[in-house]
Design a protein around this nucleic acid. Structure first.
Lengths: 339, 339
DNA sequence: GTGAAAGCGCTAACAG
DNA sequence: CTGTTAGCGCTTTCAC
């Protein structure tokens, strides 16, 4: 026994398919008697209209595709959660895919989702895509008129709706804050030096230093590759120069850095302050609890879903927008108090 | 300009749709000349076959639906990650939904996914579904012959493939381990007392106590509701009885418990040992690092996806299986060493 | 070599 | 009131 179709029901009662269809829609065209028996039969046999057929007919799927680089990163799971909530509230399902920071997987996924199974796409570029700066697959999507919103890791080469964290300002504000607490030998530890996000934060940091009359020293920006030893790099950093604050560009690294400093017998924040990016679950549980920059992931997700659905449902022209979401510094105990 | 279809290409060249279809499949029926020009045109215009149409035709979508109660829980995100990896490797896409621990949302999602848009479903019951013990929606799915695999939070009422963590043994082993390290006044803090998982762990705990000749005391099992104050409950527990070990049934609670004990000036593990469930990212970063029970989330996800795909693709009978996945105790510094 | 026709499951306009 | 028809986009026989 396979899935029940209208045809099956029709032949069971010896009526036409459209009679069944109308009956199930409780159309006034159909006699009470027939409707009732068909409805009962359908209910009894758990008839469900085939959504794939409806999708084909309606040329809409009420689904949106989400592609994030990495679900194990708390920022993205928060965004994902926000998207899910908002999309659902507006009657859309989510098809979610993970690019795993790989260009190839992102490409494949985009091609798949672009082939009609979703009404629109929300995406954050994979690391590799940003490094290679190859965005043809996204251009194709645009040309095929698939609505898309890019968030967090975006590219200028594509015109579409975007939501970006104000990473420049975040870098600037974070640095400013550290300066105000009396730190001025500030280092950055970046695991995302290939991404727009990472670069912008560093730019903001430079600007803040410059404004306060300090020189930017490239050696103070430590780039940590995937398989590199953070502990070694930090030791190198601290051996060669005096440092009184460290900005870690992701949560994991912030926590790792804290532990490494503790291991070295350096007190936080008295000797070195730490600020990390992404206010996830780790940072408030370590001791001292870490001061973090929150990017409001859930909010970004909600925004992305709403903008996308607006575009999907709105007939006619709508200019593309880029929303800049401000970050918030959550002060805890790994930085000194502003005096 | 809308999406390009075979029809569009056909009328552009004044040929029939089937000629175009065959050309794009490089069929030997079609003349070299025609094929080439059609293929080129298609490539140039980024023609993509409409997947929805193909799905309808093939009666298969190469997609699997995943419903997890809560993506913010690290165990589930690990499972999700495992599913995504394995499913992808086998050529399937994931449609993921979050039930948010709500029966209603789970029901809606199941109905949606059961209507033909996926070839099979992987699901872990929402808390509310388990509490109400209402699984009719799943029974419908089975009757409609939608392949399904249940994991972690399962129900006996449904016959299908299942993957369960050996929570009974986990509770048993954890307790045994604590007993061996000299603790015998062991409390449990449970935020999941409504779920099968939570109950099994407590049963295992009872058995271990019994075997070692200790009485089970219901007052030592603290049930923490959603809005209840953990700190208060722990104070109450410790004021009323002597406790030398605490088993927390989720990671968050384990970390919270540790912090509360520290606040109270109780040293861990000397005065009280702590073991937590779900080996996530928090536990190894707090100090002392927490001894945790790992449920191997990613592995469970991979297993679930593989079993489901096997069932989807295998024609003919296949008995339902229930896989029991063993947990592993990851010893860190919140428990005393086995002497 | 190329095209017409049927059909996947469904809806809607139009006949009867 | 009920049925026929066309069509969503595609593939696949089967004619020509």
């Amino acid at each position: 026994m396979k899935k029940l179709t209208l045809k099956d029901i029709a032949s069971h009662f010896g009526v036409s398919i459209s009679t069944v269809s109308k009956s199930l829609k409780d159309s006034s065209e159909i006699s009470r008697e027939v409707k009732v028996k068909i409805q009962e039969y359908a209910k009894e046999h758990h008839y469900k209209p085939n959504r794939v057929a409806l999708n084909l007919l309606n040329k809409t799927t009420k689904a949106i595709g989400v592609i994030v680089p990495n679900i194990l990163n708390y920022f993205f799971t928060q965004v994902f959660y926000g998207i899910e909530q908002s999309a659902n509230a507006r009657g859309y399902t989510i098809i979610s895919c993970i690019s795993d920071e790989s260009y190839k997987k992102e490409l494949q996924t985009v091609e798949l989702l672009g082939s009609g199974i979703v009404d629109g796409i929300i995406l954050s570029l994979s690391e590799e895509t940003q490094a290679r700066d190859n965005t043809e697959h996204l251009q194709n999507l645009i040309e095929n008129h698939v609505p898309m919103v890019l968030f967090d890791r975006v590219t200028e080469k594509i015109s579409c709706d975007k939501i970006v964290v104000d990473d420049f300002e975040a870098g600037y504000n974070t640095t400013k804050h550290l300066l105000k607490t009396g730190c001025n030998k500030i280092a950055i530890i970046s695991t995302i030096y290939n991404s727009s996000v990472g670069k912008l934060r560093v730019e903001g940091y430079k600007k803040a230093l410059r404004e306060s009359g300090f020189n930017y020293d490239g050696k103070n920006v430590v780039e940590v590759g995937k398989n590199e030893d953070l502990q070694l790099l930090i030791s190198l950093l601290l051996d060669n120069r005096e440092i009184d604050a460290i900005i870690a560009l992701d949560e994991m690294t912030a926590v790792d850095t804290l532990n490494i400093l503790k291991l070295k017998g350096i007190t936080v924040p008295d000797e070195i302050s730490i600020v990390g990016f992404t206010n996830g679950r780790l940072s408030k549980y370590v001791s001292p609890a870490l001061t973090m920059v929150s990017q409001h992931g859930k909010y970004i997700g909600e925004l992305a879903a709403n903008i996308l659905v607006d575009r999907i449902e709105y007939e006619g022209e709508m200019p593309f927008t880029t929303k800049l979401v401000k970050t918030t510094l959550i002060e805890r105990d790994s930085t000194k108090k502003d005096q």
